[in-house]
Design a protein around this nucleic acid. Structure first.
Length: 128
RNA sequence: GAAGCUGGUCAGACAGUCGCCGCCUGAAAAGGGGGAGGAAAGUCCGGGCUGCAUAGAGCGGGAUGACGGCUAACGGCCGUACGUCGUGAGACGAGGAAUAGGGCCACAGAGACGAGCGUAUUCAGUUACGGUGAAACGCGGUAACCUCCAUCCGCAGCAAGACCAAAUAGGCUGGCAAUGGCGUGGCUCGCGCCGUCAGCGGGUAGGUUGCUUGAGUGCAUAAGUAAUUAUGUGCCUAGAGGAAUGACUGUCACUUGCCGAAAGGCAAGAACAGAACCCGGCUUAUCGACCAGCUUCAACU
RNA sequence: GGCGCGAUAGCAAAAUGGUUAUGCCGCGGCCUGCAAAGCCGUUUACGCCAGUUCGAUUCUGGCUCGCGCCU
């Protein structure tokens, strides 16, 4: 039975957790979103969100974007394993482009899954 | 019917699926119930609360200003008077004192603040007038210039404050003595600490608390022109902490456009905006819908 | 969340209840074989809306924008 919940353990909160992802320096970009990622030591993925005040001035729309991105992550989290990801929107969106944002996110996830596979293979080679 | 004025209410409704944050029941699994606003905003005023000594004296500083009332308090609200605007309903108005004193009054104008000057006139500096200018021959104007008078204000803010407590570092509490130093709010007084003796606990990260029942609110009655108050009765209405309210679907209702003779059908739209200790106001943003009272004009009886 | 500052030409930066200095920049001219430097001239401003006042950039409210501190 896949997990659809979104408990607080699945979130990135501390500055150290955010910087570790940024220092890994891996980034995938889509039309609406920018995704940073790093591998973690847990058996589940974790999400961090950054919505810049520069991008959208008023807090209503910033919080809306945060909620939508959290919702998309919640619905698709079973596709991911032990990665920390940070989502940063590149441009603003509203209720009209919800499906666009969702497909953009799914696209990023599929790219990430390929990279994870390669990463695991390389590690396997090194360990031999 | 048209144009307008004032006050008030609402801020789509009801279901379903998947989630989020508190609360309650339960050993658990699970179940039940609650979850943004009229401005939550700006932080412009006023309080509560907390600490600084139970915030106390003086200086300095700040705020307000017709009169009366309401209130926990206010720079808010209500009533009355006055002034300006409007045909009117109404709207707007932070200014008491210029003989307590000081300052300032550009340009123009012969002359600009304290009395003089010019012309005419008279017994007589006695009386009248004087282009300009906001103000001109004076007991001027200006106190949103200093100031005076009256009233009020100590300072900081929940990142206040309290409690439990790793690592590291050495300090903390009680008694006694006294110059100086340090701290507390802008300063002085005042107050506390630093010295020494005795005893062993104190405290940062982190966590818990403060944290939501309160000057609360619906209705009825009474007092008052009103703001408001009193009594009775019903209700509980978010409490997070890198910070919860989201996504999708259905039905009905609203607005606009198109089609149609009509019933109706199709499409689009639905504002401003998101709690962070809590209240009372003010100000600013806002698609619209509805209710009540009133004014002016036109027509008809 | 709370507290406190500021806004003056394209940039920097003063002062004041009655004409907004000054420097750099731009433009035109002189100088030079050509330029630079120098000299002369010149354009562009008191964030916005109200009030007090005869008159506001200044005084008083309210907006808008920017900055700093408390963690």
């Amino acid at each position: 039975m896949p997990e659809y919940g979104f408990a607080s353990r699945l979130r990135l909160k501390k500055t150290d957790e955010f910087s570790s992802v940024f220092n890994f320096r891996k980034r995938i970009s889509g039309k609406y979103l920018l995704m940073y990622y790093n591998y973690n030591d847990f058996s589940y993925p974790r999400l961090g969100l950054i919505v810049a005040k520069k991008l959208v001035h008023d807090s209503v729309r910033r919080n809306y974007m945060r909620r939508v991105l959290r919702e998309v992550f919640r619905k698709n989290q079973q596709q991911l394993t032990n990665v920390d990801i940070i989502i940063r929107p590149k441009q603003s969106f509203s209720n009209d482009n919800f499906t666009d944002v969702e497909s953009d996110f799914l696209n990023l996830i599929s790219i990430l899954k390929k990279k994870v596979k390669v990463h695991l293979n390389e590690n396997g080679l090194q360990s031999r």
